[in-house]
Design a protein around this nucleic acid. Sequence first.
DNA 1: CAATCAGGGTGACAAATGTCACCGCCAGGT
DNA 2: ACCTGGCGGTGACATTTGTCACCCTGATTG
Lengths: 209, 209
Amino acid sequence: MIKEYLKHKFKNFEPALMEKIEQNASIKEFEPDEILMTTGQYFRSTMLVVEGRIKLYREGPEGGEFFMYYLEPGNACALSMICAAKKEASEIMAKAVEKTKVITLPIELMDDLMRNYKTWYYFVLETYRSRYEELLVVIDHIAFKGMDERLDFYLRNQVMKLQTKELKITHSEIASDLSSSREVISRLLKKMEQKGDLLLHRNYIEWLR
Amino acid sequence: MIKEYLKHKFKNFEPALMEKIEQNASIKEFEPDEILMTTGQYFRSTMLVVEGRIKLYREGPEGGEFFMYYLEPGNACALSMICAAKKEASEIMAKAVEKTKVITLPIELMDDLMRNYKTWYYFVLETYRSRYEELLVVIDHIAFKGMDERLDFYLRNQVMKLQTKELKITHSEIASDLSSSREVISRLLKKMEQKGDLLLHRNYIEWLR
DNA sequence: CAATCAGGGTGACAAATGTCACCGCCAGGT
DNA sequence: ACCTGGCGGTGACATTTGTCACCCTGATTG
């Protein structure tokens, strides 16, 4: 079972590594909206996503959920690897947005994997690099762009990631993800509708581009 | 020479690792304002800072230099390790703010170091983790705080890092670092002066807290 | 059906930030 | 001494974003 997942979602792992993981890992499931990780929490295992989708976000002072990126099958949580290795607390929130399955690896294994399996070590570095780059993109947007552009980017990203042009999301949720307020988002969405970029419906948005 | 630097600035490296580095590394110097790394550039070596200070920033559309963090002696450039390993381009700018010396290591060495020197592998992970956390702090600030708080934090950080209460920095530079405009910064600085937090002088700011 | 509630629209206003124009001051160069 | 350029102060104004109040509509539930 675990081996099947590895073969499909983590194709680059060398066979011996898959073997090793299979012998030591277990599978965990999360329901939609279930929280995987919370600010200040310690890790005891590293997680490899094999099914579903996880939202990584930063909690705002008044409960906002500032969206950073998704983890999808084939991804791993960079922090769970780093913090696991260093036994440090995380500073980020992770929440399942769909029914999600992850392979969990005890942190004690990290050293062994890192030094004896080249494909693991490459995978870890690549994971860090890509998460780091995603943060840079986030920073670019909030530092240099207005809310209109950020909203446009956000919606395009959702359409792409969720593979659908009918986004079932409320204005309030978008506002929370962008750290803004519902009214602002509503106004901007209306402008985009007038430009012909999308159609507003009750409870969902239809993307037209 | 290199060994001396390693002993003082990278105390945690095991002796054999220091030996190995010494045999393969060389030293590079940078003058103030010299650019070490630019968007889209490829790496051929990993860098360990042993003297001076490097500013890491993101370039804005109109030439702003959005400040992210400093690298100091004992630090390494996370991206130079990651991008080096993956032969990918970087997306960040690095500029010396003081006369700076770095130890450069050919990327070909990375694999060897990573798997044969435990202290190196810990060092790399710790480097990633702390850079990642610094980005999270940056995001927190621009996502959730107003310019006044960001300015306050920025100045406190400068005082701490530069070890002086007399900050030789112009209002325009601060504005660029925070992706704002000179007038806004001037106004906020004046407010802080009225509150008694600092004194404004020509060409420098005196921190009073 | 009536009551309730979440999602959403809207106008008025406030606050923060960006922009423009223009001024004065000081330091360095000639 | 004079010019010039960089730094900074300031008022007026535009724009963007946040906030408040209130309404409407459709879905759900008792």
